[in-house]
Structure formats: structure tokens, C-alpha cells
Nucleic acid binder design. Sequence first.
DNA 1: ATCGTTGTAATCAAGATGATTACAACAAAC
DNA 2: GTTTGTTGTAATCATCTTGATTACAACGAT
Lengths: 146, 146
Amino acid sequence: MQISSRLSIAIHILACIETFKDEHKVTSDFLAGSVHVNPVVIRRLLSQLKAAGIVDVARGTGGAGIVKPLQEITMLDIYRAVDCVENGELFHFHEDPNPECPVGRNIHAVLDGRLDRVQQAMENEMQRITMAEIIAETKELIRSQA
Amino acid sequence: MQISSRLSIAIHILACIETFKDEHKVTSDFLAGSVHVNPVVIRRLLSQLKAAGIVDVARGTGGAGIVKPLQEITMLDIYRAVDCVENGELFHFHEDPNPECPVGRNIHAVLDGRLDRVQQAMENEMQRITMAEIIAETKELIRSQA
DNA sequence: ATCGTTGTAATCAAGATGATTACAACAAAC
DNA sequence: GTTTGTTGTAATCATCTTGATTACAACGAT
């Protein structure tokens, strides 16, 4: 199974908020139009991003804004905020190996550390990517197309 | 969503085959007993490992064996063999961003390379882990418990 | 021919994902 | 203080993936 599109959608949302913050009020309906998903999906993601201290959403009046400095928002922060994998564990381990079997009894001890290392490698790379660079590149592309 | 337990099960299978190859004929029923999953699940995984040139399964007579040198079987090989993510793509991207929106039009260009880098980091780490070390550690643990 | 296997199709329940509807809570503007 | 446009959230739904399970034909050795 793949990692949920919630990650790419959340990044898309943040890029939109930053790009349009001075022109429109950025509502869940507006975002839904750019991402092409249901507004409720956007609101759920905004809720999670808000709980992570990344955005602020104006209840009643409407509109979302980014409240954390862009260079401090990493892809890892977003990935964690939108809860892409259960329990933060990238790999699903078969839960019930047979303890009567010498291999079944030890497979966890042998694999856990190694799977952790793989997950760490992925998360380290995610941590190196910031919304600042993503938005800078997005704006640059938009400018070059104007 | 997490990466399927097919990966951990496949590794468990290979560790079992290597550990018991001199004592029993290693059938899908035997493996199912150690992993605690249905024998058909084992057979499906063995099929995939066979297609990848990692094991050989004796039809009719029964029993599986490893046909590739253990130090040449990496976790990445197994991960790919058992088809853990669709299309080999770790991340699911929302497929339909709005091309009318400047951000929607460019989000793919901005993110694709970065997501690839993250996936690469994960796969590189997987490639460093071999069945030789996994089985060596397993045998060591078993010895220490005898 | 018999026997224990494998390969594979078919079906099923469970869980996750997004889409969608619905509506109360809310804050600003009038 | 009512109206208006939003947000937050629950509830339902179809679809997909997973893994369990049943069933059985194909197979190879004895």
C-alpha cells in the first residue's frame, strides 16, 4: 500500500495558502477547487495541520493562514501531522509469529532494528525538505509562466 | 497506510527455509505454521519470490529452497518481489489537481523530484540490508537460546 | 494409481480511503 | 440581533486492499 495522498494534498494546500493569501480569503471551498477534492477533505486536513501548529483557520469568518515560519515547516512535520501511517510505523509487521518455532520466536528481534533504520532514512530525507523551498520553487515556476 | 506485512512475512519465510532446509522438507504448510498465516498466503509469496529468482519451489513433490546467494539478496529485492507498493511508487499523489490554478498546474513538477528523493533514501537503506546478515543474526540468536 | 504438494481462482470479512450530505457552532457585517 | 458565509464534525457510502479461506486441477515421486 502506498502512503496516503493526504501528504501531497496537505502540501498543495499550504502552497495555495501562501500563494493566494494576499489576493483571496483562502477557504476550504477555494482550496477544494485547486486540489480537486471535496471541501470536507480539505477541512479535515486543515484541522490536522492546525492541531500541529502549522496553520490557523478562522472559524465563522473563514479562511486559513500559515502560522509557522516556512523554513521551519518540513515535509516530515506535514507527514506526521496528517497521520500517514498508523502509529508512526511505516512497516506493518505480521503480528503473530509462532513462538514455538525458533525463527518465529526471533524474527522480531532480528528485523525491528533494521526496519527502523529504513524508516529513519526516509524520515531524515523528509526532514531536509522545507515548505520554504517548495513554495519558492512554486512561485518561480508561476512567475516563469506569467 | 502502512507497507504490507508481505515484506516481513517474506523475510520470515526465507529465514525459515534457510534454517530448516537440512532437517525438513520446507512446505507451505510448515511455513504457515511458523508465520501463523494461511498456507495460501505463503504460496502466493513463494510464487512472487520465485518469479524474482530468489527461491525455487518443487511442484508435486513439495518444498522450497533458496537459489540466490544470501549475500546477494537484499531487503530491497524482497520488497520489490512481493510488490509492496503500486507501480513501485511509495507515495500516492492526488491525481487531479486543477490546471486552471497556478499552484495546481505546478504542484507535480515541484513535488515529484522531492518525493523521489525520499523514496530513494528509503530504498538505498533497504539495499544495504542482506538476507546473509539477517540469517546470520537469526542463527546466532537461536544458538544462544539452545 | 496413489499421495502429498503446489498453483491459482473465487469468495469473503475487515479496514482504510475519499466523496458526500447534513447541520450545529461561529464571527463578522449589516 | 438577524443574516450570511464559513468551519467543525458526524454519519453514510462506494471502492479498494488485505489477508483468510475453500476448492480443485496440475504435478511428481513412490
